[in-house]
Design a protein around this nucleic acid. Structure first.
Lengths: 160, 160
DNA sequence: ATTAATTGGGATTCCGATATCTTGTTTTGA
DNA sequence: TCAAAACAAGATATCGGAATCCCAATTAAT
């Protein structure tokens, strides 16, 4: 039921980029600040997304990251394959190494249809769709709008 | 989509005990061997299941663990609350600290119904049901029947 | 050219889950 | 009484994901 932090950061970052004008590189620093995520760690994830052919990267001034052509159509499953590895949906709920229709754990056939629903959902959610949902303003990508954090270095004195 | 190893071991162990005649203490060592799980680690988990009021433990010779009265009716959700903590189903898919119907991430309302299905499934699967399923012989609790591992200390020479 | 701003990538650190070790306590049976 | 068998519990070790650090490579503006 839980994705790794790496996966969560990756998805968030990709959606964020997808909300920006395509073609204009977005800075790692900007993404990290907006999402409130460790910049150095995000940088690593961005690298792997480049290697996974979802992003272009540009070095030097005016550098940054932007979506590869067509990458707006990327669905969450494709992203998770990069971050969690292929077959991350094939794992047994009870942790058995071998658990298939033929050699099943007692949860196998109950779990299977739910797993299929999850995969279907992941496949239908594209960056484009998710980015649009965020752009309407009805949905959030980050806990606290970065703007509100800006001047919050120190809390304002004794609040009592 | 993934439970911690601790949760997996806990569920497996409880089902295993539920397949045994109730009232007769089952040895930690026996459970660990049967499930092919680290005995010392399992022992810790058993302790916490005792504290969680699912098991009785008995020390000394003829000691071991057995289900508390009525514990056959325990469902997986109850077990997971012990091992994963309450509210382990409340976490946002994208990892946002705050994600509710009011302040939703772009996946929130898509994910919600699936999560509800998962919880419903966990609530309807009791130790009794699962143990019976295993006892029919159609479903497995462990990867390899412990019997087959017994004499397998050294592989049998060069298999070329 | 030089400098500043950016990503690339290896090395390292940190931390929590997982696993092990060691010692103490309880219980049974000889 | 004593020894063996089992769980209790705290301390310690291991491992992998998460996070940080450092420096090299690249690019644009001056």
């Amino acid at each position: 039921m839980i994705l790794s932090r790496t996966s969560q950061y990756a998805i968030q970052a990709l959606i964020y980029i997808a909300t920006k004008p395509s073609g204009e590189p977005v800075l790692n620093r900007e993404i990290a600040e907006h999402l409130n995520v460790p910049p150095a760690y995000l940088a690593k994830i961005m690298q792997s997304l480049c290697k996974g052919s979802l992003l272009y990267s540009f070095r030097g001034r005016l550098g940054g990251f932007c979506l590869r052509e067509g990458a707006e159509k990327t669905d969450l499953m494709q992203i998770l394959v990069l971050t969690e590895g292929v077959g991350f949906t094939h794992e047994c709920v009870l942790g058995l190494k071998i658990c298939s229709d033929e050699t099943a754990c007692p949860m196998h056939f109950k779990w299977k249809p739910i797993k299929e629903k999850v995969v279907a959902l992941l496949r239908e959610q594209t960056l484009e769709k998710l980015a649009k949902a965020v752009m309407t303003g009805k949905y959030r990508l980050a806990d606290v709008p970065a703007v509100l954090m800006a001047g919050a270095g120190q809390p304002a004195g004794e609040p009592v």
